[in-house]
């Protein structure tokens, strides 16, 4: 119970930092390419050949960005819990070595 409370607090703290950090992102970085994108730009290489349309994107404005951040945050927690529980269950069912 204590661990669950601590995790909830940690999740809230991370999302709060994300809310603040996203303000800085939109103020200073939203339009800038990352290192690989800049290298591609400088080499005159454009993105092509995508074979998959993702259901979501990160959004163009602050609110959309926050929303997709929260959706991704929850999705990652859910998938991580599922996978980690499966792995831990395997560990518990294995005989002691």
């Amino acid at each position: 119970m204590k661990a669950a409370g601590m995790c909830m607090k940690a999740a809230m703290a991370i999302l709060f930092i994300f809310m603040i950090g996203a303000l800085g992102y939109f103020a200073f970085s939203a339009d800038g390419p990352d290192g690989l994108e800049r290298t591609m730009e400088n080499a005159g290489v454009a993105e092509h050949g995508s074979v998959y349309d993702a259901p979501l994107d990160y959004g163009e404005d602050y609110q959309a960005y926050l929303l997709t951040g929260v959706i991704g945050f929850v999705a990652v927690i859910a998938v991580s819990l599922f996978i980690a529980k499966m792995l831990a269950k395997k560990n518990e069912t294995q005989p002691d070595r």
Binding site: C7, G21, A22, Y58, I77, V79, A84, K85, A88, N91
Partner: peptide, 25 residues
Amino acid sequence: LTNERIPTMAILAAGIFVAQMLNFP
């Protein structure tokens, strides 16, 4: 992996996910 470390793994993964959304100049 023990049950005690599962929440840490999940929160860590989610934290890294949102941190990767925050590009810095």
